[in-house]
Amino acid sequence: MSYLKIPIDLRSAVTGKLRRCSYEESIAQQIMLLIVSHYGEVTGKENYGSVIWELEFSQLVKISDWENKVQESLTLAINRYEQRLNDVDVSVILSEIDAEDKKNIHVRRKAQITVKGKIRITGQPFYFSTLVYISPLSQ
């Protein structure tokens, strides 16, 4: 079985030449959508997404609280909306931007988000990691 690669190019859809991806890449795409979506963005799935965007502009959240809230929200979302994974473990580490990353002076922090689990149908290990840049967080 093949899965659609996102973003979907509508011109390709018309010609029947949609890009496809692997099972594992499809899972990774779903996790990334959960990370970048805010609650209420997907009609009919009000709790689809993560708390990141609710916390992004909060100046009063401690770093450890931010990490814990994001980790908890992503764990719940992945367990609910990504049924192809078992034994999901989410890690979130918020850190300062390195000197070489300071091309955009408005970005102050980055969140390293890592998801580990097992693919339900094969039992194979699954690993996904991404960086999300956070702008106005001051603590």
Rank of each mutant, 00 (worst) to 15 (best):
V70G: 00
R84Y: 12
G44M: 04
V51R: 08
L76T: 14
L4Q: 02
L18R: 00
Q29F: 05
I119Q: 07
I113G: 03
S50E: 08
I97D: 00
T15L: 06
I6K: 06
L10Y: 13
K110M: 02
S91Q: 11
S50W: 01
S91G: 09
I119A: 06
G49E: 03
R108L: 15
K62A: 12
D101V: 08
I97T: 04
V115G: 01
W53Y: 13
G117E: 05
A77H: 05
T130R: 10
M32E: 06
P136W: 11
Y48M: 08
R11W: 13
Q30A: 13
E46P: 10
V51D: 14
E67W: 08
L34E: 00
I31R: 01
N79T: 01
I31G: 00
S58N: 15
S95I: 04
R19A: 14
H106T: 15
G123D: 05
L18P: 00
D65P: 09
L94V: 06
Y23D: 01
I8H: 08
S58P: 05
I121L: 12
K118A: 00
L4V: 04
E56I: 11
V92S: 06
S12C: 06
D9R: 02
S58R: 11
P7V: 01
V132L: 13
Y23G: 00
A111G: 05
D65E: 14
E25V: 06
K118H: 03
E46K: 12
K5D: 04
Q83V: 10
S2D: 10
G117Q: 06
E82T: 07
E54W: 03
V115C: 07
E54N: 09
K69T: 03
Y3D: 08
G123C: 06
I27C: 09
T122G: 13
N104M: 08
T122E: 14
E67V: 10
L33V: 04
E41T: 09
E67G: 09
E24I: 10
E56W: 09
R108T: 13
F126P: 03
N86F: 15
T130A: 12
L18E: 02
M1W: 15
Y3A: 05
R20A: 05
V115D: 00
N86C: 12
R20W: 15
D89E: 15
R20D: 03
Q71E: 14
L137P: 08
S95A: 13
T122I: 15
F128H: 09
K5G: 01
K103L: 11
W66F: 13
K102V: 03
M1I: 10
S64Q: 13
S129P: 03
K69W: 09
S135G: 07
E82K: 03
S50Y: 01
Q29A: 05
S22F: 06
K110W: 02
R109M: 11
D101H: 07
K110D: 04
P136A: 10
S64L: 12
I97C: 05
